[in-house]
Design a protein around this nucleic acid. Sequence first.
RNA 1: GCCCCCAUCGUCUAGUGGCCUAGGACAUCGCCCUUUCAAGGCGACGGCGGGGAUUCGAAUUCCCCUGGGGGCACCA
Length: 486
Amino acid sequence: MDKVRVRFAPSPTGTLHIGSARTALYNYLFARHHQGTFVLRIEDTDVKRSRREYEESIVRDLHWLGLSADEGPDAGGDHGPYRQSERGQLYEDGVQRLLETGHAYHCFCTQERLDRLKEEQLARGEMPKYDRLCLGIPPEVVAERLAAGEEATVRFKVPAGDWPFRDLIHGPISFSAEVIGDFIIKRTDGGYAYNYAVVIDDAGMKITHVIRGEDHITNTARQLMLYEALGENAPEYGHHSLIHGADGGKLSKRHGATSIGEFRDMGYLAPAVVNYLALLSWSSGDEREKFTLEELVEAFDMSRVSKSPAIFDIDKLNWLNGLYIRELPVEELAELIRPYLHEAGIELAEAQRPVVTAALQANLVILEDAPEFAQLFVEEMDPAESAPADKLRSPGVAAVMQIMHEARAARKAEFLSLDEGHELMKEVGARAKEQGLKGKAVFMPLRVALTGRESGPELFYLVSGLPRGRILERVQSARRVAESAG
RNA sequence: GCCCCCAUCGUCUAGUGGCCUAGGACAUCGCCCUUUCAAGGCGACGGCGGGGAUUCGAAUUCCCCUGGGGGCACCA
């Protein structure tokens, strides 16, 4: 086999969508697995909707995912240009070639006539297709009308017959030319149609395998015809299924976040997103669920990509994200959550940061949730006024508070290390025990006193990560509640 | 309407004629661990869309039906 060359060809009319990202991933994995080349091509023939800033954001998102291209507008390469808007001459050369060889012809039909034609055919229950009215116009007449400045499109003359191909994922698929009308390859505005431009580009860029979404499956026949008319070798095709929303419909905005950027902003980690996307429609065959990009490259195989559509399941993504968060080094997690805390107005002290980060690491699903967990380390709170204040009115609570107060007061540092926190709690536990207090009777009141809540991180995190002054205040307040209860 | 694709637990999937009393993961539920909540460990619940056919034997092959998705543009 020739050296594998695949491409990801987004149109810059929006940001990188979760579905497109999966297409990019499959292309990337296929290329890397076969030591091939991954090309990025920008399909910006739709001048009205394409924007350079979208191209930039797509490149940025791909990079974030770790799927940077080997060749592309940003990376360069020997098969450029990599933007369709810069490939006009190549398209024009091809059109002339098809015109000269009789594979294409000028069409002067108006939009009105085409609309009417389609309407009639639909009413008769036929598949709408161009009726070849302009194919019969003599060449000299065509030349005259063109010279007179009449608007025209160029249509491809669809060759009859069956157009079978072997799809990398689906196996044999065949289309009859019967159902395909002569399609436009060059528009009146001088632009070139997608199905045509793609062929010129894939041929010119020596693409060997086209891996794309199933929505392109019916385009394949048209493209195969074009390859033959152009005298070029067609690549192999693989069409993966589309991602659906929880209701079974096409994934859209109303299903929540759909763009890679949104997931990044919420605090999903790139390796988790990549891992999840790979698992949608693909499985390794063994029972592994967790893969790094490198492991995916190693294990990826097109024949193991599922044919059926997959429903986007945020629960599983969340699970994977939590997995990746839990294995992050604390310092790294601390840096990652910093912007989210800042956004929420939470600035942790240097000595406090590792403690708070470690405390929330086990619970965090997405980075965005960090402030909610960190909140109790920075908020103003008086246990006497907290909801579970009743928990402070049990016998022995005053004594427990006294012990905690002494223990913490004896340590002068504003914050403690986790080791010191552990040690402090051991001391408190031991001293309480001497007074016949233990278990829930000592720890639940302490929790309520320190946080005003009945659940949360382990106590050693709290005594380490809460400021000394606050601990002393709260313990005093809790003690007053206990004593007033008699 | 016409063409194409798809069909295993709620979800993602393993399964390519006998290893299937259908395996794993997420979710759910329960138990354990734990001074709380999580995390973690263990376990439970739960599925081959329907009907024919081929075969000694079908989740696996073929046909029909049903259901879902995609396409049928001077969008990509």
